[in-house]
């Protein structure tokens, strides 16, 4: 290209008008997204480094985090909420995703009758709000109504019934299972879609090679849907560490009984807005939000840079 510059004016780069339309197309989304999402997020992260000292906002470095992790007033609540949140996530991974995969595997059996009906029905709870879901289950599990003991009596398990939501040692599991009940439709649908994407020829080739039934699922289909399982895992992770509504609806802002269902979302809410006698604390709220941000960021990075890189994506 060096010879181009040396010669006549026709060789000079052509000047052309600015393409303003690109900016016009991008601007509205960019402005709203930046102003309402990104800047507040950054501001929240910044606020976590400030606190009120003698009535004046002052830069305190990582002091807020030190308080959150170590101070007697905060640390117990925080570690409790974090522990509960981890349990909440583990229950989802162990219950929601395997059930979702199993349902999807059954639904994708070729020529299965009523498949569309099952699919539609099982996905229904996913569309309902946490508020509805929370209250419905609160009623059903309520010992006052007696629906659960009645149903358990039908299968001879009446003696096992107890007011799970009211007991500290079972409340978290119960709430997690309610959440699983609501969200199982999402992994089911994503896995179902991934299974439908496997070309028929591959399955037919497996049939010809004598790989059928269960071993076909384990040896052929499961490896091919691993990327989809990766996606649902990260979606579950982000959703779980950001959860709030269900616990708030079922157990209230205090996440009772005795904070046994307290997760980071409810802790953030109580900290930021206060409840009953405790006043809201903006700086500590921002600090908790920052911790949640870092946890989610770590999870997403792990997924994007480690899991997704290692995982083979198959081109059909």
């Amino acid at each position: 290209m060096s010879d181009a510059t040396s010669s006549r004016d026709t060789m000079a780069p052509i000047r052309r008008p600015r393409r303003w339309h690109i900016a016009v197309f991008l601007l509205p989304a960019f402005l709203v997204y930046s102003a309402v999402m990104i800047l507040p997020l950054i501001e929240t992260l910044r606020l976590s480094l400030f606190n009120t000292v003698d009535g004046e906002p002052a830069f305190v470095g990582l002091a807020n985090f030190k308080v959150l992790f170590g101070d007697a007033r905060w640390a117990a609540d925080f570690w409790n909420a974090l522990k509960n949140n981890v349990i909440f996530f583990i229950i989802h991974m162990l219950v929601q995703n395997p059930i979702g995969v199993a349902l999807a595997a059954m639904l994708s059996i070729p020529k299965l009758r009523f498949a569309a009906f099952y699919r539609t029905a099982i996905f229904l709870p996913t569309l309902l709000s946490f508020v509805i879901v929370g209250f419905i289950w609160k009623l059903i599990l309520s010992p006052i109504w007696g629906v659960s003991p009645y149903l358990m009596d039908l299968v001879g398990l009446k003696s096992f019934f107890s007011p799970w939501l009211g007991k500290p040692d079972t409340a978290l599991i119960a709430v997690s299972l309610i959440s699983v009940w609501q969200y199982v439709g999402i992994p089911m649908m994503l896995i179902y879609a991934a299974l439908l994407n496997i070309p028929e020829e591959v399955i037919e080739a497996a049939e010809c090679d004598g790989v059928t039934g269960w071993s076909q699922f384990w040896k052929i289909k499961l490896p091919l849907i691993l990327p989809a399982i990766g996606i649902i895992s990260i979606l579950t992770f982000v959703g779980n560490f950001n959860a709030f509504d269900l616990v708030y609806t079922v157990q209230g802002a205090l996440a009772g009984p005795d904070k046994s269902t307290d997760i980071l979302g409810t802790l953030l809410y109580r900290t930021f807005f206060g409840f009953q006698l405790q006043l809201g604390d903006r700086s500590m709220g921002a600090t908790i939000a920052t911790v949640m941000f870092l946890i989610i960021l770590a999870g997403v990075s792990l997924y994007l840079f480690v899991i997704q890189r290692r995982m083979r994506r198959y081109q059909f």
Binding site: T10, M11, P13, I14, R15, R16, P17
Partner: peptide
């Protein structure tokens, strides 16, 4: 597509831009 450099004339009229 825009040429990086050079001239394009249609009926003796420069049309590059």
């Amino acid at each position: 597509e825009d040429a990086t450099s050079g001239s394009i004339t249609i009926d003796d009229q420069e049309v590059a831009t």
